[in-house]
Design a protein around this nucleic acid. Structure first.
Lengths: 166, 166
DNA sequence: ATTACTGCAAAGCATTTGCAAATGC
DNA sequence: GCATTTGCAAATGCTTTGCAGTAAT
């Protein structure tokens, strides 16, 4: 699935609105810390945010290692770290050793279900779960900063398929 | 924290009851699959289960790389994988890239809180959270096999310390 | 002009693997 | 005796880093 934003080398024109807005924020943050706004950072930023699903750092690196807009692996890892620090992506480590990221900018809080059969990451929102967690922390005097819930099992589609095959 | 079970080279005598019982089950599983009960497996098994807290594979490997009961790194990794498959330990990957394990045999289901300040893993049980998750899966027709909840934040102790320092 | 960033290739590091020797059955 | 395991060391594969050249401000 290549959801790469269509963008020519002068790419400010067609990238979608969300990405543009995010980019402006990122630029502000970069400048604020006395860092520089570069072509490579723009490319990595665009590609990372263009992925609506979860992606692996090295996957993105493979994708960006060829072609006219190539960026070196080192820079990709460095830029992702910068984006993480700035809060645009967040690392998740569930079913795999290697680091997955997901977009966090413009993405409401949600939890994950991972299907054992097809490997898909399903996102869901569940206020009841959030509430139960918050309540728990209040009782135990634990100051929650964030939480993660992951459910492993079989998704609806795969369960149906399994049933049909029997 | 070295909670290593006291055990001489002929170690069947003093190891605690839980470990002995677990070991007998592990032996049964090993035999069932036509594999062999070896000294190395016994050593790794004991050390892994003797840890009441979470441990890293490479930490255990360091620990067992020296001394009279030494076992090679390769074997340690292979044995941990075997134990995981057999359900005696389970891998968790939260705050770190590297693989942590925790004992799962004789360990009731629980969730985790990780303190940002002191890095401690706190375990807790929370039936309300479990219930909310189960209910959610029922509604979405997701067949849950297991779930994990991790809460990141500041533990009671560290929060108190912070307050005192102000 | 100055200083940060990039690409490159080398280094790191936990983990895995191939193979000959050792060991359980 | 034969097949599985082990220890060893080399290989793997993702990620990080040092450095000299390049580019942003």
């Amino acid at each position: 699935m290549k959801t790469t934003t269509t963008s020519s080398s002068k790419s400010t024109g067609r990238a979608n609105a969300l990405t543009e807005q995010a980019w402006r924020k990122f630029v502000a943050l970069i400048k604020q810390r006395g860092a520089r706004v570069t072509r490579s950072r723009r490319i990595v930023f665009e590609h990372a945010l263009a992925r609506s699903d979860h992606f692996r750092a090295d996957e993105l690196a493979d994708e960006l290692s060829h072609g006219p807009r190539r960026v070196s692996r080192g820079t990709i890892y460095r830029t992702l770290a910068l984006m993480e620090e700035a809060g645009f992506v967040r690392p998740i480590r569930d079913s795999d050793v290697h680091c997955h990221y997901e977009r966090s900018y413009g993405h409401r809080h949600h939890e994950h279900m991972v299907c054992d059969k097809c490997g898909e990451f399903l996102e869901f929102r569940a206020p009841e779960i959030t509430k139960a967690i918050r309540e728990h922390c209040r009782k135990r005097r634990f100051e929650e900063r964030q939480h993660r819930v992951v459910i492993f099992g079989t998704c609806k589609k795969c369960a149906a398929k399994k049933k049909r095959e029997k």
